[in-house]
Simulated scan of single mutants.
Amino acid sequence: MLRRRVRGKAGRDPKPSAAVIDGQSVKGAGTVGAGTRDYDANKKINGRKRSVAVDTLGLLPAVMVRPAAVRDRAGATSLLLGLYLSGSCRVVFADQGFAGRLVAWARRVPGIIVHIVTKPAGQHGFQVHPRRCAAFLSWPQD
């Protein structure tokens, strides 16, 4: 309800049509139960992984928290189902960590188009990518 109001005040459609998904492993405090955390060997972190979807305004239509050992692609299935059930975000942008079977599964099961955005050659670290027209031709703008 609050997200719809914020989007409306910003002059946007109350239901977002696109989102960006990603995951982040975070250390678990000593009070976090062993059943809800695990070791992420890639990041060398014992804790949890939070997978989030943000719309074009940075608002959160879906969040999933799992043990850190869960791969981005495995956690994304629940995240994408949450987006589907919320009735919004039929197009999702993701990085290379989500490439593979998830793209076909998302199109077949919840009917969400997942665009994998790759880094430009030679890029190191984080950089904001400019909008790429070709990626936006297959979905409605909000």
Rank of each mutant, 00 (worst) to 15 (best):
D38T: 01
R66W: 00
S17P: 03
S88M: 14
P140H: 03
V109C: 05
V117T: 07
A69W: 03
G100W: 00
R101T: 03
D38F: 06
R3K: 09
V63S: 15
L137P: 00
D55C: 07
S78D: 14
D142G: 14
G122T: 10
M64S: 12
A10L: 15
G11N: 13
V91K: 12
V63C: 15
A68M: 02
G87L: 08
R90C: 01
S88Q: 15
R107W: 11
F126S: 08
S78H: 11
G75Y: 01
R3D: 14
K43A: 13
K44G: 04
V114M: 06
C133F: 09
R48M: 10
Y84L: 01
I21N: 04
H115V: 08
L57E: 05
R48Y: 02
D40Q: 04
S25T: 06
R132N: 09
H115T: 07
L102S: 02
A41N: 07
P61G: 14
R108D: 13
L60H: 15
S86G: 15
P130D: 11
G8E: 13
G35A: 11
A29T: 10
D142C: 13
K15C: 14
Y84H: 14
V117M: 00
C89M: 05
M64G: 05
V114N: 06
V32A: 14
I45L: 01
C89D: 03
L81C: 09
L79R: 03
G111Q: 04
A121L: 08
V20E: 08
A41Y: 12
R108F: 10
L102N: 00
A29E: 06
P120Q: 10
L80G: 03
Q96F: 04
A99G: 00
G23M: 08
D40H: 07
M1H: 12
D72M: 10
A74R: 12
K27R: 07
F98Q: 02
T77S: 11
I116K: 07
P110G: 13
T31F: 11
P130N: 10
P14Y: 03
I21C: 13
L102K: 01
P120W: 01
K44Q: 12
P130I: 03
R101V: 00
A94T: 04
S25P: 05
F126H: 08
I112Y: 11
T56A: 15
A74W: 00
V117P: 10
A68N: 06
I45S: 06
H115R: 11
L79F: 12
A104F: 02
K9S: 09
A134E: 11
K43H: 08
V26R: 01
L137T: 08
A19K: 07
H115Y: 11
L83H: 10
G125V: 01
L102W: 00
A53Q: 09
L80A: 05
K44L: 03
V70G: 10
V91P: 00
R12L: 15
S51E: 08
A94W: 13
V20T: 12
G11V: 04
S78C: 03
V63T: 15
A34R: 12
N46D: 02
K9Y: 13
P61I: 06
R7V: 02
